[in-house]
Nucleic acid binder design. Structure first.
Lengths: 203, 203
DNA sequence: AAGTGGTTTAACCAAGTGGTCAAAAGTAAA
DNA sequence: TTTACTTTTGACCACTTGGTTAAACCACTT
């Protein structure tokens, strides 16, 4: 495989990501992806054969850039409260830089749930590790007793959901002002961290 | 308009809702909607003229059944903690009975954000009312100082997000076992209520 | 029974879709 | 320069799609 190959392939993937992520599988046109990549439509098929193939490549990449991070971010040996703070900050930052990612992933996983099972097997992601971390902290008396699964969902919910519901939120709370939304999200890092810590710390 | 008219129109709307909500605008076929409704495809166009018209009817209905509830549920004069408890219970219950609603709404609002602005004007929904309620409680010293917008998003996030991320969650935490997920959601009502109350109540 | 109006249908169409293919253009070795 | 190859292109195709239309159907009135 020559470097030109790789180059074209990457150009295609980048363009496909751009289009698919905003418009979804059915909403995207091969022609538009080709145009975005600045190449001929036939070339898409030459490299990826079918639309589904191309989509799968993009989806896997998106999925793996979002989901496994959840676990990885908890792998360090600072205090649990620091872990939460860092996770909230980093995860929100990551989504800010990939605004459309959450909706893309959740729309597609809902449309085709079986695929998730298959993808999750590929990735070396063991949620039990994080669960154990929280259980350990509970046993040590550092945080209130709580089902770790519920806690994890709580944390992730508060980080991700505002971006899934962004248009509604913007309309409802910020008169569709993007800047206000941005400020809100920046402030949110602190707010969510405190909220969680208040909720689980022993008085 | 005869009762037969109304009947066919409702049949169409019901079928369209069924199909659109799962497959989205582009993913749905007029033929499939017609089949689901047990009628001829031309009849769809006779009643709704275009696919977009039909979709709009379905979307508005879905949107209004989900968003305005958030405000309405806070309109009573029980204690703030009771309000939160009731909201969490009712809202989760509502989504359980309309599992696909959140993803449908958020996918479409992201695909077409301008529409939200327009829709929100139609509905008599003033978020300032809820914000005032929380501000009042803060002033009275019943709950910790917190930006009410952040608090509202926190509450809604924790109720709605698990359903948006359901396939991923199911795969990650419950080995794709639907029953376990159901139990988790049932338990969640209590957990989320407590989590919020712990986070905002004065020690 | 015939007329009238809205409702339902089957056949049809134009546009757009993903995908193919053979030829052209580029590339590198002999 | 010739040969052998991969990459890129434009023309093309089969098929699906949303949408149209004219005729059939049906419930009512006269």
């Amino acid at each position: 495989m020559t470097s030109k190959d790789k180059n074209t392939e990457l150009k295609i993937l980048k363009a496909a990501k751009e289009v698919f992520i905003v418009k979804g599988l059915e909403g995207s046109r091969m022609q538009e992806i080709a145009d975005t990549a600045g190449i001929n439509k036939s070339l898409l098929h030459y490299y990826f054969r079918t639309k589904d193939n191309l989509f799968d490549a993009v989806f896997k990449d998106a999925f793996f850039s979002m989901i496994p991070r959840i676990a990885k971010m908890f792998e360090s040996d600072i205090s649990i409260f620091n872990k939460i703070e860092i996770f909230v900050n980093d995860y929100i930052d990551m989504i800010v830089q990939n605004q459309y990612l959450p909706n893309f992933i959740f729309h597609e996983t809902n449309r085709n749930p079986e695929k998730v099972v298959f993808l999750l097997k590929d990735v070396g992601l063991n949620p039990m590790l994080i669960i154990d971390i929280f259980n350990e902290e509970i046993k040590k008396g550092n945080i209130k007793p709580i089902d770790p699964k519920q806690l994890i969902i709580n944390i992730v919910s508060m980080c991700v959901f505002p971006f899934v519901a962004k248009p509604v939120m913007k309309g409802l709370f910020f008169n569709n002002n993007e800047k206000e939304f941005k400020i809100f999200i920046e402030e949110r890092k602190k707010q969510v961290t405190n909220f969680i810590i208040n909720a689980i710390s022993i008085k």
